[in-house]
Design a protein around this nucleic acid. Structure first.
Lengths: 351, 351
DNA sequence: CAAAAATATGGAAGGGCTTCCATAAAAGAG
DNA sequence: CTCTTTTATGGAAGCCCTTCCATATTTTTG
């Protein structure tokens, strides 16, 4: 039979309320009693039963993370930050992976109703006004990471500035025929990155060439469209299109995610072209993969974003935060590796 | 106020027991009543409250996954299989990441006592006899994935055979100076892979050269030692040592994990050597990264391993399984990409 | 030293569900 | 149409906690 609070109370010769107060570190317990009860707890190896605590407190000490799992590594690093922050606060993490669109709403519905969790972390996904309202009305704390909704807390990255800096860097490297491989323009990051890209061109008096701008929206292959086009295949396909232009192809390409860049690099290699000599690349995200590939990329501080999201969410859960909508914007940082050509240029200068 | 089973019962004009039975798909409910109650449930948008269910049923419908998180991608793919299998059975996944050793035992203790979960999946970790007994005694189902304990269910990979095949492949490619970069020999996979490697050499009348065998155990840099040496840095360091041998270096190297291979490839490139021309590599694991790097590797069917682990665990949880200890051995499969030199050789032949 | 205030403790009620036992309704048998 | 069996339903008790209210104990104050 399980050891309950009653067993502890009886053995310690106190009431169950007292035991409960000891467990919950209530200040209004005499040191003597506390010590006695703590002794018995250890002796019986008692541990409170979370389900019962949850029922009584109406609190689960658990947070849901909804992650578009299939996409890969980006979330892994975020998750790491999240996990560490949560365990510091003694919260558990329930992981929901979403692949299909309707599954997302399913999970929203469940988290709102079942009350299995005290709060929700939503990664890289959109949320309809409808559900946003539901979360607000039901007072279920939610934070979007790498996603945006006007009435919800969100932690995002300066996408526009990132794209701007990436393009600017390529321009500084001497490229004037600039390409862009983007995700689905239906997604906000894709739209904003396009804007940043265009701004950089404009600021440098470069007229964008429509041919050099690829976005996944024109395609209807579901594999290419998955995850809003932020996938390997889309990168492969996009780069093929650019290379098909022959001499007209761009010489420097900004690719809106590392994962797309991985695919893009593959085609470039397959066609016998050299990176960065023939085509220079700067991408976006800064996942670990970029390091292995030698990708020059705009790095997002993912670990920090995950950790901050947790800190903030817990504040809301524990009502230690005002009720305003919290928005935090992180800045991406240009990490120069091999694909942008900066190192190569530097070597030449030094020679 | 929350919608409870009482609200539904009242509105439907039935008793709470009836509502409960409808929810739990009890057969002994007349179709008429079922329909009526189901209607009200939808109308009130009622959903049972998991904490209360958990308390009453003494069941949580949740499984804990204990993962050595920091290491990386290997677990990501396993997790994917796990997650999908779990959600099919309507179980939730609580993720515990372990970095420090004592944290592991902490989590064991908690899962055993708090009863927050119905079962545990332990990835790539050892478990002491002591804790193994505790799990058995407390009847808490647990399955080890990529780990072994005699009295617990486990799902593992044929490490010896995998290493054997990898080495054999290199030998077939014409290499006779074979190197090995291994993890910490304190870990079982590292020991077994060493054995497989040696067996392959013996079977082909090659005397192993001590100099060509690197294992992390001789080092005391904590970074290199982390995760039993299955990390990038260890690979980098190990390969440096082999390359330091100059003309004496091995021409073909079996590296016991993809992640180490990534580090190893980096040094090889830095030193201006070519893969596979100067050094051929076959590694182990088959994580997604290996694809990007063009690594020839022994692929573990990770998704399947994760999924099977779940299926099995749930059977145990739901008592649908006999009580024997379940052991399943998966077979790794050689995936030929660029680093082993097989493709290159093939091209030469075709020319 | 008594009265008032502050502090510590006991335990009933309540949280939302499942389940068992008792009872009511329906079906079958004679 | 009545009696027995089967099937369907109602609701109390129990799962293990927290919390509030009532009471007991200690400390402070005049």
């Amino acid at each position: 039979m399980r050891v309950t609070i009653y067993d502890v109370a009886k053995k310690a010769g106190v009431g169950i309320g007292t035991v409960s107060r000891v467990i919950n570190k209530s200040p209004q317990i005499s040191p003597k009693t506390r010590k006695k009860v703590l002794g018995i707890i250890k002796e019986l190896n008692y541990q409170p039963y979370v389900m019962a605590q949850g029922l009584a407190r109406k609190k689960t000490n658990t947070v849901a993370c909804i992650v578009p799992f299939f996409t890969g590594y980006f979330y892994f690093e975020l998750l790491n930050g999240v996990q560490q922050a949560l365990s510091k606060h003694n919260y558990d993490l329930i992981l929901y992976s979403v692949d299909l669109f309707d599954k997302k709403e399913d999970i929203f519905e469940r988290t709102l109703q079942e009350r299995r969790v005290d709060g929700v972390l939503l990664f890289s996904m959109t949320i309809s006004d409808d559900y946003a309202d539901k979360f607000v009305n039901k007072k279920m704390p939610i934070a979007l990471v790498d996603g945006y909704h006007k009435s919800l807390d969100s932690i995002t990255i300066e996408n526009k500035k990132g794209a701007y800096l990436a393009a600017e860097h390529l321009i500084k490297m001497g490229h004037s025929k600039l390409g862009l491989i983007n995700g689905n323009l239906g997604s906000i990051p894709a739209r904003i990155r396009l804007k940043g890209f265009n701004d950089a061109l404009a600021a440098n008096d470069i007229t964008p060439d429509e041919q050099h701008i690829f976005n996944v929206s024109s395609i209807d292959d579901p594999q290419i469209l998955s995850n809003d086009g932020f996938n390997k295949l889309a990168g492969y396909y996009g780069m093929s299109k650019l290379l098909d232009l022959g001499e007209n192809r761009p010489t420097g390409v900004f690719i809106s995610s590392d994962i797309q860049a991985a695919g893009a690099m593959k085609v470039v290699n397959e066609r016998g072209l050299k990176i960065p000599e023939d085509i220079a690349i700067v991408s976006f995200d800064g996942i670990e993969l970029s390091e292995y590939l030698g990708l020059s990329t705009m790095k997002q501080p993912m670990f920090e974003m995950g950790a901050l999201a947790v800190e903030h969410l817990i504040k809301k859960i524990e009502k230690r935060s005002n009720n305003g909508v919290f928005k935090k914007l992180f800045h991406p940082e240009l990490v120069i590796r091999d694909t942008c050509g900066a190192k190569l240029q530097m070597e030449k200068i030094l020679d």
